[in-house]
């Protein structure tokens, strides 16, 4: 039992931040919540709909299809970008001029705005004027991302890998750089194979940053919108209509605000849930290491 008297006046100093957060986050979110539980025909008149929109969305085959595509896309880019990023990081020069050059070159894609990335690839891959598209056609490869679903997927995945592998690689590179030389010396003296050195020294040492990299790539790719929207617009057909694209179609294209709001909330909760799982894993991992 502590008898210390606490001066609670300091809480008032938190008020300005609270007000700002209200306006920037809570109020917009509550608007969405409002739409999710009500139906409206305009005129600012709302009719209570309970969980109706949620039930409709949970059973919607359209949403299931979009979710399936989303999970597939995120799964594929994680499976490509994470091993590739680690591989690149392992093979980057450790110091000197070439290390700096590599770092700068690899950061470049990360600095390009999303819609510019989309535009670059949209043009680059066009069969009529794009360098890649024309080259593929000249080589006799039947490639057209506007008409072939498979080609559209390949294009988007390559684009995402081009855009974001650097992030994984740079984070892993930082992790690798912090491993003391003595570990590599010990591994040599123990006659460890290259694979075992990776498996038992490098991978455990970079697992912390690697988790962060995977989390970031998961969140970003799960919410991906701009780039596929610019390149394929969700097509051909619905082949590349991921969750965000579908959501925007529903909310702004069809003006189905109720279902779209319910959809948004569930979308948000899924991301929150996965982030929470990652966070918990990381925290318990750290605690284990500090023990």
């Amino acid at each position: 039992m502590s008898l210390k008297v606490q001066n609670n006046k300091a809480w008032f100093l938190v008020l300005p931040v609270l007000v700002l957060v209200m306006f920037s986050a809570v109020i917009p979110l509550m608007t969405v919540v409002n739409y999710a539980f009500n139906d409206t025909f305009g005129n600012n008149q709302f009719f209570w709909n309970g969980l109706g929109w949620f039930e409709e969305m949970v059973q919607s085959e359209r949403l299931h299809a979009a979710l399936g595509r989303q999970v597939l896309f995120t799964g594929i880019i994680l499976l490509v970008e994470v091993p590739l990023g680690i591989f690149v990081a392992l093979n980057m020069p450790k110091k000197g001029f070439w290390a700096s050059l590599c770092l700068v070159l690899m950061s470049l894609p990360l600095l390009i705005p999303f819609n510019v990335v989309g535009t670059i690839w949209q043009i680059f891959c066009r069969v009529d004027i794009g360098l890649l598209g024309r080259a593929a056609a000249a080589l006799g490869i039947d490639y057209n991302y506007t008409s072939d679903a498979f080609d559209a997927w390949v294009t988007l995945i390559i684009m995402d890998v081009w855009h974001w592998t650097s992030l994984v690689a740079l984070l892993c590179y930082a992790g690798l750089q912090s491993i003391p030389q003595a570990y590599y010396h010990a591994a040599r003296i123990d006659q460890s194979t290259r694979w075992n050195t990776f498996r038992y020294i490098e991978l455990p040492k970079i697992s912390g940053v690697l988790l962060i990299a995977i989390l970031l790539r998961f969140i970003d790719s799960f919410m991906i919108y701009t780039e596929p929207f610019v390149v394929t617009g969700g097509g051909p057909g619905n082949a590349t209509t991921f969750l965000s694209i579908d959501l925007v179609k529903m909310a702004i294209g069809q003006f189905d605000l109720g279902p779209a709001a319910a959809f948004s909330l569930m979308y948000f909760l899924v991301i929150l849930l996965v982030s929470w799982v990652f966070y918990t894993v990381m925290v318990t991992r750290d605690a284990e290491q500090d023990r």
């Binding site: 003391p180 003595a182 570990y183 010396h185 040599r188 003296i189 020294i201 455990p204 040492k205 290491q289």
Partner: peptide, 20 residues
């Protein structure tokens, strides 16, 4: 090279394989 010399070396900071 070191791996073929059959010597053992103990370093300033303990080097262990964490996951083993």
């Amino acid at each position: 090279p070191a791996e073929k010399r059959n010597i053992a070396q103990v370093f300033q900071f303990p080097v262990v394989y964490d996951t083993m």
